[in-house]
Design a protein around this nucleic acid. Structure first.
Lengths: 136, 136
DNA sequence: TTTGCATGTTAGTCAATGCTAAAATTTTTT
DNA sequence: AAAAAATTTTAGCATTGACTAACATGCAAA
């Protein structure tokens, strides 16, 4: 598989908004086995019609499935993308909190903003830096 | 001056878009003493009417002045805000390129995305981290 | 000075993304 | 099973921020 092909899934095709939604679906399924519109709505603090519209967009992109009045679930492509975003979030949070000392609540928000802007390659380099730093 | 008052100027009141525009005005004035709509347009790769609309927004916020068919210039508040964004950009670029080894062209783009998401306090902490790291 | 090109502005459109109010459907309770 | 509550969806709207096409203005060259 070429790098271009791989990047179709994980690199920034979605904006911040859709990435936040898909990440919430991913987290909720891990935590409670399902992700209803209301769950996503309260998790992200968005009105339910906004969530509904976003899920429709994600569904059109083949990243989630959604039966009327039913559960929202990730497709395999959706899982890959969401896991990648989640991973970036975790690495950034670790860097901000542990290495440079940002308050965890602020870091949580900032990681959430930044995670959509860094490419896979940069993230890999950041992880390598953190490892090296941890081993002095 | 309270922290809240100071933050009115420098903290994230503008979105990424307007911050990019004001940063371009700041840079162009430093480089060539003026920033015309066309200069900003080619610098940012935006159509001129888009620039025009953005400058109107910045003008309504009291951050730039703009005479019809004339030069765009920063107000004192605009200078403060733009210098702050520029500074964040430079710190992030340095971190990405020198500390973690990102390609300069990619780092330039990523710094440009991230600079709008990090608060002043986090930036201060990042600068402190870089200093400490440089002095081993 | 007049013509023509560069620059700036206006007008109209579009996509993304959010909202509220109200209708439809499902689930729960009695 | 019927009524009530919760959930989801639809419909309609607002804002941001981008675009193109067309018009207006300013400057420079002939």
């Amino acid at each position: 598989m070429s790098n271009e092909e791989k990047s179709i899934i994980t690199e920034r095709n979605l904006g911040k908004s859709l990435e936040d939604y898909i990440e919430a679906v991913y987290d909720l399924h891990k935590e409670q086995g399902q992700a209803r519109i209301s769950d996503i709505s309260s998790r992200l603090g968005m009105a339910k019609p906004s969530v509904n519209a976003a899920i429709k967009r994600l569904s059109a992109l083949g990243l989630v499935t959604h039966e009327r009045y039913g559960d929202v679930d990730l497709t395999p492509d959706g899982v890959r993308l969401a896991a990648n975003v989640r991973h970036k979030h975790n690495v950034l949070l670790d860097f901000l909190v542990r290495l440079i000392g940002v308050d965890p609540d602020i870091a949580e928000n900032e990681a959430c903003s930044i995670e959509h802007s860094l490419c896979d390659d940069t993230m890999t380099k950041l992880e390598a830096f953190i490892s090296k730093y941890d081993n002095h």
